[in-house]
């Protein structure tokens, strides 16, 4: 993993990820998801240079002139059936990979807890 910064999603992993998502779908749909307004707040945090500036490294649908240091952020529910893991990746990416160039948005207080929650919901919706 450490030497391959963009782990390919193998068929196996994808299949099991989808199975997991399917399993999770029911309870999640029972609780109301984030509102369109909250998702829009999350998008702004991701796109704003002084905030998340995720576009510096990640292609995100709707963003322009994105960098290519990180993988495109697509199909996030499949890659992260567990939203807490996505939150952890954004909070401090160096835990999963000490060599990552991705800034530790939570640990270094680049964003507030509230901003990271909004951001996580938005990224998870991609």
């Amino acid at each position: 993993m450490r030497t391959a910064p963009f782990p390919p999603l193998s068929g196996m992993a994808l299949a099991s990820a989808m199975a997991l998502t399917a399993g999770l779908a029911a309870p999640l749909q029972a609780t109301a998801g984030p509102s369109a307004q909250a998702l829009e707040q999350g998008r702004k945090i991701a796109f704003t240079r002084k905030l998340g500036n995720c576009l510096a490294c990640h292609h995100i649908a709707g963003g322009t002139a994105a960098g290519n240091i990180g993988p495109p952020l697509v199909a996030m529910k499949q890659r992260y059936p567990n939203k807490a893991k996505l939150h952890a990746q954004i909070w401090d990416a160096t835990v999963a990979n000490p060599e990552t160039p991705m800034p530790p948005f939570g640990r270094h207080q680049i964003l507030t807890e509230r901003q990271i929650d909004l951001l996580t919901d938005y990224i998870w919706s991609l």
Binding site: N53, L55, A56, C57, A65, A66, G67, N68, I69, T94, E99, P101, P103, P104, H108
Partner: peptide, 17 residues
Amino acid sequence: NFSCATCHAQNAGKHIR
């Protein structure tokens, strides 16, 4: 949390924005 090496070695040749 970047080193000079993060940008100019590890990611040299890549696009940052």
